[in-house]
């Protein structure tokens, strides 16, 4: 085995055999150490959140990963493999360049299938919205402050959460990582933050928003958010997803009969595996 071990021979057989063995063994160890070092690096550069999202995203079914340009009919069938990060998506730029003006013509409507989805804000695929902070009259400075809340679809799906944990004031949040956590009926649900920035104020309770965020200056910081004409087809798709997700549960009730979603659905259908449904709809694996 080793030259100092009694009876060791330097024969070609030994050299080849042991050489191969130690190379393989070394490669295994190096791979393991490599993974550890890379993990450490990820933590140092605070990539953990992005990795969590990436992992979650990869575990999503294809149907949930449909491209926003599929909603608007610009693309026939397109599955996102970029973690919904349209800002870094080349195809998205191409689609935007080709987009016709009339696509955003009729966007005043805020009622979609009974959901209130005002067009004055942008929506994240994980059912949160971002709205530019409206400052009082006389203040026309744009200081990049946004409010973040959960949309009507999400609201009705969860109902009133039993407990909400918000990201601490002064802390940084990244888009596509947990912005706040809802606890309800034993389920522990992370709601994805739509934007990156610094948390400057907490909302909740009687306010319609949960976080006030001073967004990063990045020009692409909002590129991934849905807006205007995209909202309606997106919600249509989300209804389909919800229906599929509900159908998985044993009670087998569907939304096929149409109508609106009742607020606080889980109280009305206690037999549904809400944990699974919520996880599915809020893009958590």
């Amino acid at each position: 085995m080793f030259p100092f071990v009694y009876e060791f021979h330097w024969t070609p057989g030994h050299i080849i055999f042991l050489g191969v063995f130690f190379s393989v063994f070394g490669m295994i160890i190096v791979t393991l150490i490599n993974a550890m070092l890379r993990s450490r690096k990820d933590f140092r550069f605070k990539k953990a959140g992005a990795i969590l999202w990436k992992t979650d995203f990869e575990d999503l079914p294809k149907f949930a990963r449909a491209c926003r340009h599929e909603f608007t009919g610009e693309a026939e069938h397109r599955v996102c493999d970029n973690g919904f990060n349209c800002g870094t998506c080349e195809a998205h730029q191409t689609f935007l360049a080709q987009q016709k003006a009339e696509i955003n013509s009729d966007i005043s409507q805020s009622d979609i299938f009974g959901f209130t989805m005002p067009p004055d804000r942008m929506y994240h695929r994980g059912h949160t919205w971002v709205k530019k902070m409206e400052h009082g009259a006389g203040s026309d400075t744009d200081d990049g402050t946004y409010i973040v809340g959960i949309d009507d679809f999400g609201n009705r799906l969860i109902g009133k959460p039993e407990r909400v944990s918000l990201s601490e004031i002064g802390s940084r949040i990244e888009a596509n990582t947990a912005g706040f956590i809802f606890e309800k009926a034993g389920a522990h649900l992370r709601i994805l933050s739509p934007i990156s920035g610094e948390v400057i104020e907490h909302g909740g309770n009687d306010k319609e928003w949960y976080l006030k965020v001073k967004a990063d200056d990045s020009t692409n910081g909002m590129a991934h958010l849905l807006r205007g004409a995209e909202i309606r087809p997106w919600i249509t798709r989300e209804m389909e997803r919800l229906q599929m997700s509900l159908a998985t549960s044993k009670i087998g009730f569907t939304l096929a009969d149409g109508g609106e979603l009742l607020p606080d659905m889980n109280r009305h259908y206690p037999n549904v595996d809400w944990d699974a449904v919520w996880g599915e709809m809020f893009l958590e694996a």
């Binding site: 550890m36 933590f43 990795i51 969590l52």
Partner: peptide, 20 residues
Amino acid sequence: PKFLVFEFELHKLMPVLAGI
């Protein structure tokens, strides 16, 4: 997070392990 990040990084190296 430590587990998940390690899992993620290890998974990226899977082809090496598959080769070995």
